[in-house]
Structures are given as C-alpha cells and as structure tokens.
Design a protein around this nucleic acid. Structure first.
Lengths: 220, 220
DNA sequence: AAATATTTTTAGCTATATCTAAATAAATAT
DNA sequence: ATATTTATTTAGATATAGCTAAAAATATTT
C-alpha cells in the first residue's frame, strides 16, 4: 500500500488525534488539525477508507486500522529521525526543525532511512524527547516520569521537558542538563523536595522541586 | 518567483538541454528528457513562459532567461550537495544517489542548504565530479582536462572519470585514486605516454596513457 | 511551389487535492 | 416528539499535471 504525500499527512494527523490508535476521530477534528475544510476531509476519508488504512463509517468518524497504524508510525519514524539529524548534525534549534522535517519525512527511500538511523547511532528519542518507532513500528516508549517522582539512587536519562520556554531551556543549558543526559538521583530533601542529581557521571546538580517537576526522564 | 516541483524539474531539464543557457530547446527534446508527451510539455512551457523563467515563442522552442538560469542552478546546487551528503556521510554508492537526490533537491529551506553546505565543508564538486554552483549560482568550473594532457610538475585534483564502468572504477579504487584526490605529475614517458603520478603527497602511481586519458582533473 | 512529413499546439478528458454552497444526517433543546 | 442546532456529506468549482486525438504550423521532399 502506497500513499500520496497528502494521504500520509492525513493519516499521521488521524493517528495523533486518535491517541495512538485507540479512540475514534471526527471529521471536524481532522479538518482543524489539517487546517482544511470538513468537505475536503470527507473526501480524503473515503479515499483512506478505500485503501483500508482507516475504518470509515459515514457520519460516525474514523478508526485507524492496524495497517494504517503501521504506515503512520513509519512516517513518524522518518520525521523524528530527520529532526535528530537537523539538530545534532546541522545545528538547528529545537523550534526550527518541525517544518523542514515535515517535508523530509515524505522522501521515499527505505535505504536512506536505514542509513540515516545508523549514521545517527540509532537514536531512541527525537530532540523533543518523543520516542522514535523502530522499522517495524514498535515504540519502546518506556514510561516517562518527572524527575521529582524519582527516588534516591534511581538512574535514568532525560528525554523531554514540560516547560519549553526560552527561559527554562536557557537555565538547563547553563547548568549542563540536556535531552539525552544520563542522570542519577543522589539526594532528595524531604523538606522542600529539592534534589541533588548526578549528570553524566561527573557533574553534580542541585535543583528545586519546581525545576525537577519540569524535567521528564525514563528510568534505566 | 516560486516554482512547483514539476516546474523545477522542467526548468532543470531545459537548462541541461540548452547546454548551460546557450542554445534553444525544442518541445520534443524536453518531452524526451522528461519522459512525458509533447502535449504536456507545451502546457508547461506556457506556464514557465508566464513566470518569465523561459522565453517561449510558439513553434520555435524556448530559451532560458537569466532568472530561470539562476533558479535552475539553485536546484542543481541542492541536488549535488545532497549527492555529496549521501556518498560521504551515508555511504551510498555513486550509482545509488541520483533518484534520492532528485527528491531531496525539492525541499524548500535555504537554511537547510546553507547548513548542509557547511557541514560538508563547502564541497566544490559532487561525487560524479560535476561542479556545485555557489549560492549565487556561480559555477567556478575550472576547465577539466584529462590526466594525459597535464605536464610534468603540474598539480591538480581528480574531479571525474570518463569511463565509469565497474571495471575501471574497481581499478581506480585498488590503486588508491579517487574523486577529490590531490595529484601531481611526477613523470611522463614520451615513448608510450605512460605517467607517474603522486597521489595525496604520499603514494606514487604508474599508469598507462589509456588510463590517464580516462581520468579528469582540474589544475591548481 | 506544391505535396508530404514532422513537429507542435489545442481541445477535451482524467486524477488529485483543494474550495464554497447546498443538502442531509445526527445530536441537542424545547 | 418536534424543532433547532451542529456536524457531515454531496454537488459542483478550481488548479496542477498528466494523457489522447485532432488540428495547425513548420520543415522537408520532390
């Protein structure tokens, strides 16, 4: 099953709106997400239904099929790998990558994606901390938890931030925390919830509970 | 002036067919190059004429304009930079890059190309030895000459091969010659035209006139 | 210079992806 | 349970990019 660029974009939107293929999605929601008119969406849903990537019952919204989920995850995989490339290799900022990745994700070449993945050292998360599905569409999305929820002696890796304001990112950069950093909780003060964190097995970092609550990590 | 992907491809074809904007090009030639029908080409020529990237006189073929030349060179620049990326960074083979680069060249992001250029260290030639235009469309295509036309003590850089058969490429690889290699002519035997070449200031290479005639270099 | 051949264009059709306006189905309120 | 509102679909346009078949212009032969 091959999809056009437009179909791929719609399918991706439906996948996102359906919260990873669980709930069903309305025509209006898709129109809002895609910034098109409901009439255009109806048309596209019929097409995607014919291709059996969604289950479409007129007037009752759509559910993504297993096949559709697989295709959507492939597109998401490509998008996120390109984001990693743009940030790590071409020095793009977090907020500059989305639009370009939106174009790059539609390049058709399995070899290209395979090689890119390898070149980037098989990253598991994109620069925003979102997980990158593997080539079979599996997302090994280990549950993310805020740093303040971790216990003393637990180790993990920073994968995202809740607050992505310039001020907060600047602060993180200054203290040497970053997406991908390996961390370990050295101490947790019961009184105010502030924490002592070991970063990359060398730097020690003190942070308030407020800061810790805005940093997301996976346990390892 | 912005062009669609299809328009960009036609313009590139016209640029190539017109031998770098000199001669005029017929509808049939464009149709052959683009693998479409002359009727489709007529339509497209009218559009490109309206956008003033070509000068179109019905029944008399087209000439590319200065504006069109600039745009075509930008597309060519992007194509060739991506080819360098695919070969140097993602280990693609020479003959695997064209189709993917054909897709990548249409990504619209000046920043992306600027950064890619810098990341690749401002290459002047693509993996086939074709020159990469700069961001103003200037092609500093220093004249290429066959190795056997160079004189003793002259230095240069290998930029292309005439014979790109697998056998010849294999041979070159084996003896340590490659696109981009810096070379110097150490000796030239008058009797049979065979040559002694210094490669990258370390390896010395003996080659027959036949081989030398199939290697293209620029002088430095 | 007229006839023939070739090239190019036009006219009309198809498919994708969008739109607006009108019609219809479903959901909500009275 | 009927009326009203909201959501969705259908019908009929538009633009791009392709096609075939027929018409027209140019080029080549005789």
């Amino acid at each position: 099953m091959t999809l056009t660029t437009a179909e791929e974009n719609y399918l991706k939107a439906i996948y996102h709106l359906s919260d990873g293929a669980t709930k069903s999605v309305s025509t209006n929601d898709v129109a809002a997400e895609m910034k098109t008119k409901p009439a255009s969406v109806s048309d596209m849903l019929r097409k995607l239904g014919d291709k059996e990537v969604i289950e479409y019952r007129k007037y009752y919204g759509v559910n993504i099929t297993e096949e559709g989920k697989k295709l959507a995850l492939q597109t998401i995989r490509k998008h996120r790998l390109w984001e990693v490339f743009l940030v790590e290799k071409l020095q793009f900022a977090w907020d500059e990558v989305h639009e370009v990745a939106e174009e790059l994700e539609h390049i058709q070449s399995p070899l290209l994606i395979q090689r890119l993945d390898s070149y980037l050292n098989f990253p598991k998360f994109d620069p925003h901390g979102d997980p990158i599905p593997d080539e079979y569409g599996d997302v090994r999305a280990r549950p993310r938890l805020a740093l303040n929820e971790m216990e003393v002696d637990q180790s993990g890796q920073i994968v995202a931030v809740k607050d992505s304001s310039a001020a907060f990112l600047k602060y993180l950069d200054k203290v040497g925390a970053y997406i991908g950093a390996r961390i370990k909780v050295l101490d947790k003060v019961e009184f105010d919830g502030s924490m002592e964190i070991l970063v990359d097995q060398k730097k020690t970092l003190f942070m308030s509970k407020d800061v810790a609550a805005n940093i997301l990590a996976i346990q390892s």
